[in-house]
Amino acid sequence: QVNQQQLQQLMDMGFTREHAMEALLNTSTMEQATEYLLTHP
């Protein structure tokens, strides 16, 4: 289960819902999730 607010923040940054969910499931903080998305295009 992912934090919906964090998911929305990542989608607002331009990431897809699927990619943002993957990042949130594989990390524990927003900072890590953002870094994950930038390093796993």
Rank of each mutant, 00 (worst) to 15 (best):
Q1E: 11
Q1A: 04
V2N: 08
V2T: 04
V2L: 07
V2A: 03
V2G: 08
V2H: 07
N3I: 03
N3P: 03
N3H: 05
N3C: 13
N3G: 01
Q4K: 14
Q5Y: 06
Q5R: 06
Q5D: 15
Q6P: 03
L7C: 03
Q8K: 13
Q8N: 14
Q8A: 11
Q9M: 04
Q9T: 05
Q9D: 12
L10R: 01
L10K: 01
L10Q: 02
L10C: 00
M11W: 02
D12C: 02
D12Y: 06
D12G: 13
M13S: 09
M13V: 02
M13G: 13
G14N: 15
G14W: 00
G14R: 04
F15A: 15
F15H: 15
F15Y: 14
F15T: 13
F15E: 13
F15G: 10
T16L: 08
T16G: 12
T16C: 13
T16H: 09
T16D: 06
T16S: 12
T16E: 13
R17H: 06
R17N: 14
R17I: 02
E18G: 11
E18N: 04
E18D: 07
H19W: 12
H19I: 09
H19T: 14
H19P: 10
A20S: 07
A20H: 00
A20G: 10
A20V: 05
A20K: 01
M21P: 01
M21I: 05
M21G: 10
M21Q: 15
E22S: 11
E22V: 09
E22K: 07
E22Y: 06
A23F: 00
A23Y: 01
A23H: 03
L24Y: 09
L24Q: 06
L24I: 10
L24A: 07
L24S: 09
L24N: 02
L24P: 02
L24R: 03
L24H: 09
L25P: 04
L25G: 13
L25Q: 15
L25S: 15
L25V: 12
N26L: 03
T27Y: 05
T27I: 01
T27W: 02
T27L: 01
T27C: 09
S28Q: 11
S28W: 01
S28M: 04
S28G: 12
S28T: 13
T29Y: 01
T29G: 09
T29W: 00
T29K: 14
T29C: 09
T29H: 06
T29S: 13
M30L: 10
M30G: 08
M30Y: 11
M30T: 10
M30V: 12
E31V: 05
E31M: 04
E31N: 09
Q32S: 10
Q32L: 07
Q32W: 01
Q32D: 08
A33N: 01
A33D: 02
A33R: 01
A33M: 00
A33F: 00
A33P: 03
A33G: 03
T34Y: 06
T34L: 04
T34D: 06
E35C: 04
E35F: 05
E35G: 09
Y36D: 05
Y36Q: 13
Y36L: 09
Y36C: 10
L37Q: 07
L37G: 10
L37E: 08
L37Y: 05
L38E: 15
L38T: 15
L38Q: 15
T39C: 09
T39P: 13
T39Q: 13
H40C: 10
H40P: 14
H40Q: 15
H40W: 10
P41L: 03
P41F: 15
